[in-house]
């Protein structure tokens, strides 16, 4: 069973009268010769690791070895001001929490990469809490986001060194947007619209980590990726259409990634990594660490 485009998956759903989660369940069962239970065991483990990583970042002491990250998730949670109600604040803290746990050598699910590992957990935990969605449905949402990731991986790239940060936090936001849209009753077309919106907002995002470490700007970009996912899903659920279809947006991320200078793709030589302060941090971190 082979899906190369999101439109292939939608087509399959229509023909087989399945939803996107069922389509991906069948994809995995057939290709990997697994039972439904085996696939669900893997999904449960993934969700469990995601929840744990959020929890750890919100409760444990997390200061990254470089000193760049310092218990920010907890700081956000304690903030007295809400820009848009407590839900957005908590979602922000959750994304940062996972980034901090990752930087401190904690356990994460790299969905789709370690650098972008905060977005899906923050979105899924927030959906469970705000909409009282049962875990079983959240596992289905993971299947939906895997559909988005699969097609993105085939036609673009998750590697910051190839597609910049649109390949990491951009694709993660798109996967999360699809999950939200699915969970709130969006149909296949609407899921694709949300993916299109999220990726268009990330188009051309460079990969410029300070000192080559997955900390600055990665961690805060995850939090913004969460907001991107919720806003993109909101537009799609309202019935607004991404004028450029999602598959074409994915193709454009590939083109843009190819056109981007290598200096802006994980080299640590461009963008924020190459700022005066970025250079100073790099010197300090690697001197004290050697």
């Amino acid at each position: 069973m082979e899906f190369n485009l999101l439109s292939d998956i939608v087509e399959y759903c229509r023909r087989e009268k399945k939803d996107m989660a069922q389509a991906m369940l069948e994809y995995e069962m057939r290709n990997k010769r697994l039972t439904r239970e085996q696939v669900y065991t893997g999904l449960k483990r993934t969700l469990f690791v995601m929840e744990e990583s959020v929890e750890q970042g919100l409760t444990q002491q997390v200061i990254s070895p470089s000193g760049m990250l310092n218990n920010w998730a907890k700081t956000i949670l304690q903030c007295k001001v809400d820009t848009l109600g407590p839900a957005l604040k908590k979602a922000t803290a959750r994304a940062i929490a996972v980034g901090e746990v990752n930087a401190c050598m904690g356990k994460i699910a790299a969905a789709p990469t370690a650098g972008s590992a905060g977005i899906l957990p923050a979105v899924l935990v927030t959906m469970m809490e705000e909409h009282a969605i049962p875990r079983e449905r959240i596992l289905e949402a993971l299947l939906v986001s895997s559909a988005v990731g699969l097609v993105f991986a085939k036609n673009s790239s998750f590697a910051g060194s190839e597609a910049g940060c649109m390949g990491e936090t951009g694709s993660a936001a798109a996967m999360a947007a699809g999950a939200i849209t699915y969970l709130l009753g969006g149909n296949e077309e609407q899921i694709l619209e949300s993916v299109g919106f999220a990726l268009k907002a990330s188009m051309g995002l460079v990969c410029d980590p300070v000192g080559g470490l997955v900390e600055e700007p990665c961690t805060t970009r995850n939090a913004v990726g969460v907001a991107n996912a919720f806003v993109s899903a909101q537009m799609a659920l309202a019935g607004i259409k991404s004028l450029i279809p999602a598959d074409e947006v994915i193709a454009a991320t590939k083109e843009v990634g190819d056109l981007m200078s290598p200096r802006l793709k994980e080299s640590g030589q461009g963008g924020l990594a190459n700022t005066k302060t970025g250079r100073e941090i790099q010197k300090r971190v690697f001197k004290t660490a050697e």
């Binding site: 990752n102 930087a103 401190c104 699910a109 470490l213």
Partner: peptide, 15 residues
């Protein structure tokens, strides 16, 4: 074909 768990993982120790 890639596994969905290659997309949703690996589960790993960071960073």
């Amino acid at each position: 074909q890639p596994s969905i768990f290659d997309i949703l993982g690996p589960i790993m120790i960071g960073p």
